[in-house]
Write a protein that binds this DNA or RNA. Structure first.
Lengths: 111, 111
DNA sequence: CTCTTATATAGATGACTATCTATATGAGGT
DNA sequence: ACCTCATATAGATAGTCATCTATATAAGAG
């Protein structure tokens, strides 16, 4: 993943409504009308946000009839995590990190 | 780390110049004038970007005489990684993830 | 074909942002 | 005190963005 991709993803996540959408999609696919019920925004505004999230690759859309079913794109999300984890690890490695522990125990997640 | 903090960090990282700054600081502390040499922006613009990065907690500043020494705030960066890793893992857990492997082998980083 | 439902697009508006030039602050050096 | 260097702040400007209302598209139902 390149720097420009990361910037695009971060720009998409720079709106708290869109972060909420990502959280809402963690549990699995949801259609636009389901998402709309969870937010206090109008339908066109949600549509705009979903376009941004799809545009950076974080969200996929599956269209079936009238419905648009949105879900997280796991690969993009993991790629983004890898980039960020790499930054955090580089920071650890090139400094002292004198406590003798690796990255794992720092984040608390085995990702 | 709360949703609003994540949005603030993402907003800070939504500019590719600022992502470059974060990358430049991975190797350790740098003063503003060192950073300035690596970018094609004016000094006030860099000052603005550093203020944004400090404002979200990703970067710390240590002032000594005339100089401002900037470095990454490891805790904030790791906290952000944890949040993102958690999202990615939740996505894995609540879907099938039928290949029998954990998050570790997905990201390739032990963070 | 007509009506309803789900979603997208157009256009407007107010807020925010990246960048610049010009200037201020503040620390050392002579 | 004066000059220089490193950095910050002020103010302007052009561009971007989140949100809305109004309207369009497109798919099913009757």
């Amino acid at each position: 993943m390149k720097e420009a991709d990361v910037a695009l993803i971060c720009k998409a996540l720079s709106d708290s409504n869109r972060i909420k959408v990502i959280n809402a999609l963690c549990g699995g696919e949801k259609c636009a009308c389901e998402l709309l019920e969870e937010f206090e925004i109008t339908q066109p505004t949600l549509s705009h946000h979903m376009k941004v999230l799809c545009g950076c690759g974080l969200v996929k859309v599956r269209r079936k009839g009238k419905w648009a079913h949105y879900s997280l794109d796991r690969e993009t999300l993991l790629g983004f995590c890898r980039y960020m984890n790499h930054l955090a690890c580089k920071t650890l490695e090139e400094r002292g990190n004198g406590d003798g522990v690796g990255c794992d125990s720092k984040t608390g997640f085995g990702v």
